[in-house]
Design a protein around this nucleic acid. Structure first.
Length: 850
RNA sequence: GCCCCGGUAGUCCAACGGCAGAGACGAUGGUCUCAAACACCAUACAGUGUGGGUUCGAAUCCCACCCGGGGCACCA
């Protein structure tokens, strides 16, 4: 029940003790250390990338923060984990680039500006300063000279420039389409920003609107985004790759052409026929198509609807438009639809099948029309059941007939009622037979379809990069010339920014009305701004040459640093930011601007910091304030707690961890540095061999653990070394032994990855100049890794019977002989015949006997 | 429904197919103290979600199931 002691209270006690007993202090003053080293580090500036080619380069990248208030536990965790990697690289002698910046465009600033009647930049840059200060206090090894903010005109100038390059290549285009609309934020949303029919940002129910909007043609890269994951499969978390694969949603099948029959109009005229293509993954079930369905909200439905069905169709369409995604997404729902009064002709057997409009067919997937095979597709079967349409089985899987059970069968089986397919028994040959025939008759072709949609990038909000396009009555869409970039945001504030369903920029008359760059006539600027994910799709390139003025980045600098060696950030960006960045990189590659196709070599997703089993939230009242924790335990203890809590990708339940324990350990480690009595330059050679071996083994293990990102285990190893050193001082070789200095210095260096202040305090107390962060990783003496003897275990029938101390290079025969000679083993083998002896020298002998 | 990840002491977590325990939290006992806190020392606590299989040997590999977390989902 007793809370962990606060360091300041303990410090007072220590001072009292010091007076009474004139002993070494047992703790150091954490708050004072944080003050002191901040200044020293600012002065030494130890983390600026040299970029001079003298050392191998490493690019450590962490997802840049959005400037919302101050840092929170989530930031603390990413930064702590990320910094272990960056600082380890520094210690290993790499030339590290570890930049920081802010993803500083976005809605919260705009909403705050409306409320406070000010410009969004006020809120934004104030928060950035707060966060920057907190990050400095947190001691992250960032290279501050590369700092950038996406809302700076010198940054978004190049966001606009890139947009224009994408447009030139047809990768950015405008189209009218039904789009996701958030009625609360009063803006459109990308597909990726709609979660379960709700706005990812504010949780409001998303509706549809028909709008002309800008898109990036991500779909053109769908296959490459999928294929190139092969390069990432060992260095990216499997689940992120799985999520991207899901999201891209590749499916193989065929396009099949159906003729919609012409027919007489009841008024005596003719309704023209036309060809409609459908996408299907099961062309082999074509003979089982008993009706045809068109998405009710697709243009096609209205176009082919027969006059006598028009009224029913219009009413149905009205109903469909009113329903939200929530309703529509419910799979439990009854199927709805209307007959359109038309018939389609099945290309394989000439059969006439009725054409229906329904909302279970999606307008924006495939061709917006499907052939319905109720026997072998549950959705079609549900529809057939609702409207009494025929069901015809064409694959006999041995299961009960779907006509009777209303359970569609989807497996392999014997084809029946399928013309020349009859008798085939597997899907693969059924599909290829049909596709070959369709292709020969030019009525279809094999095809691949993707679930991925193009990336909708326009936003009807203010605080983003304006789209650098001018709309001219005579010239149409005109790009703003490069030398006129950036198109800077006007000075709007407060009520001017209120969402009205159109961009606030449209109402800024002075800003929006311009001369056409092409003909000089009257024209209007495009008044939408870009999604903030556009900004973050290339910031990692800008970091390589943040002050470059002749382009978004210096291609030479990018060649030197990219792709990033390690990216650290939250899994919440698994499909949004990471997919977009991969797309940008590939597009830039195709433009010849970069020479690689994947931006991030390795990815680490840290877990969430939760509390009492639940995500921290205001409504639950279980939030843990980072600032409070730092005030109470200090930066190092918080960092150590987050790193030690478990594997980096696991969630951390704050209720399960102990920052007080972390602080205790750090003080215990620090105490070693006061006990060392040998001189700083003392040679370690003659030191206590046992302790030296522990030290060197620990360093080697830490190297391997750090490479495999098992940082929690690294901390455990450092704890072991501290324990061993403590023991050596108190009851072993004593404080004057050089091995004690070696061990303590090693602790300081290893701790510098996680607890920079404590490490610096120790380093100084050991008589060294700052900074321990650049002291260099200890060199392992291979000779000290050799063990004099190891414990071999002797098993009988796999059960442990004896242990032997043996030389590590003992021969298998010798070990076997020793094991068999062991009295305990002899006894265990009495009356038995030895069948087999497995020897794994020098660790194990297993005797199989009966 | 499909796809990923994970189930080890009271808790968080370790363990190249080879002694289930490295480290920590918490607990208990002790040393120190007038007493307490701090510090230090010591001790206890699981047979690895369940059931099969492979193996001389399985926490580890394979299969099925259960539980928890996550992703996709009327995507034809």
């Amino acid at each position: 029940m007793c809370p962990a002691p606060r360091y300041d209270e303990r410090q007072e006690d220590d001072e009292a003790m010091t007076e009474q007993h004139a002993e070494e202090p047992t703790t150091y003053d954490v708050a004072a250390a944080q003050e002191r080293w901040r200044k020293v580090w600012d002065d030494l500036n130890p983390f600026e990338a040299a970029d001079d080619g003298t050392r191998e380069r490493r690019y450590a990248l962490t997802m840049f923060p959005y400037p919302s208030g101050d840092l929170h536990m989530g930031h603390a965790e990413v930064f702590a984990l990320h910094d272990v990697i960056a600082r380890y690289w520094w210690q290993r002698g790499y030339d590290v680039m570890n930049p920081i910046g802010w993803d500083s465009f976005g809605l919260p600033a705009e909403n705050a500006a409306i409320k406070r009647d000010e410009h969004p930049s006020t809120y934004t840059y104030a928060n950035i300063e707060t966060q920057a200060e907190s990050i400095r206090r947190y001691g992250v090894s960032f290279d501050w000279s590369r700092r950038l903010h996406t809302s700076d005109p010198e940054y978004y100038r190049w966001t606009q420039w890139l947009f224009l390059r994408f447009r030139e290549r047809g990768l950015a285009y405008r189209k009218s389409s039904p789009v996701n609309w958030c009625p609360n934020d009063q803006t459109v949303l990308a597909n990726e920003q709609v979660v379960q029919g709700m706005c990812e940002r504010c949780g409001a129910e998303v509706t549809k609107r028909e709008l002309t909007q800008w898109y990036f043609k991500v779909t053109e890269y769908a296959q490459r985004l999928l294929d190139d994951m092969e390069m990432l499969k060992d260095t990216w978390p499997e689940r992120v790759l799985a999520m991207q694969r899901n999201w891209i949603g590749r499916s193989e099948g065929a396009h099949v052409d159906f003729e919609i029959e012409p027919r007489e109009d009841s008024g005596g005229g003719t309704l023209a026929g036309r060809t409609v293509t459908v996408f299907t993954t099961r062309p082999d079930t074509l003979y089982g198509a008993t009706f045809f369905v068109v998405a009710a909200d697709a243009k096609l439905a209205g176009e082919i609807c027969a006059p006598e069905r028009r009224e029913a169709f219009d009413a149905y369409l009205e109903q469909v438009r009113r329903e939200s995604d929530i309703e529509r997404l419910s799979t439990e729902r009854e199927k709805t639809g209307v007959f359109l009064g038309r018939y389609a002709v099945n290309p394989v057997n000439g059969e006439r099948i009725p054409v229906w409009a329904a909302d279970y067919v999606l307008a924006d997937y495939g061709t917006g029309a499907v052939m319905a095979v109720p026997a072998h597709d549950q959705r079609d079967l549900d529809f057939a059941k609702t409207f009494g349409l025929p069901v015809r089985r064409v694959v006999d899987t041995g299961e009960e007939n779907p006509e009777d059970t209303f359970v569609a069968t989807t497996g392999d089986g014997v084809y029946v009622n399928s013309g020349d397919l009859d008798g085939l028994t597997d899907k693969t040959s059924g599909i290829s037979t049909v596709v070959e025939r369709l292709e020969a008759e030019r009525r279809g072709t094999s095809a691949v379809n993707f679930r991925l949609r193009d990336w909708l990038l326009s936003r009807q909000r203010f605080w983003g990069p304006p789209i650098p396009i001018v709309h001219c009555e005579t010239c149409g869409e005109v790009a703003v010339p490069d030398d006129q970039l950036p198109v800077v945001l006007p000075d709007l504030r407060g009520a001017d920014l209120k969402p009205k369903g159109t961009s606030p920029l449209a109402a800024a008359e002075e800003w929006v009305n311009v001369d056409c760059p092409s003909c000089g006539g009257p024209a209007r600027r495009d008044s939408d701004t870009m999604d903030t994910f556009v900004d973050s799709s290339w910031y990692f390139l800008r970091y390589c040459s943040p002050h470059h003025e002749d382009g978004p980045f210096d291609p030479e600098a990018v060649r030197r640093w990219m792709p990033a060696d390690q990216y650290v950030g939250g899994v919440e960006h698994a499909i949004l930011h990471l997919l977009y960045s991969r797309f940008f990189t590939k597009a830039l590659h195709d433009m010849g601007m970069v020479d690689f196709v994947e931006p991030f070599k390795a990815l680490l997703n840290q877990g969430q910091v939760i509390n009492q089993g639940k995500a921290m939230s205001k409504s639950l009242g279980n939030g843990v304030n980072l600032g409070d924790m730092i005030d109470e335990y200090g930066v190092d203890a918080v960092r150590l707690t987050l790193v030690f809590a478990g594997p980096p990708e696991d969630d951390i339940d704050w209720a399960d961890v102990s920052p007080g324990g972390s602080l205790k350990f750090l003080q215990r480690a620090w105490r070693l540095s006061g006990d060392v009595t040998s001189e700083p330059a003392v040679p370690f050679d003659g030191g206590d061999l046992a302790l030296r071996k522990v030290t060197h083994r620990t360093v080697r293990e830490a190297e391997q653990l750090l490479e495999s990102q098992r940082f929690n285990v690294v901390v455990a190893r450092v704890m072991e070394l501290v324990n061993a050193t403590r023991k050596a001082i108190d009851s072993g070789c004593g404080p004057a032994d050089p091995a004690v200095r070696e061990a303590t210095e090693t602790v300081a260096i290893m701790l510098s990855l996680v607890a920079p202040y404590t490490a610096e305090e120790m380093w100084q107390r050991l008589g060294h100049e700052p900074t321990v962060a650049r002291a260099g990783w200890p060199t392992v003496d291979e000779a000290l890794l050799v063990q004099d003897s190891v414990t071999a275990v002797v098993q009988v029938q796999g059960k442990l019977r004896a242990k032997l101390e043996v030389s590590p290079d003992i021969a298998e025969d010798d070990l076997e002989a020793m094991a068999l000679a062991e009295p305990v083993i002899q006894r265990a083998l009495e009356g038995k015949t030895v069948r087999k002896v497995i020897v794994r020298a020098p660790k194990l002998v297993n005797i199989v006997a009966s």
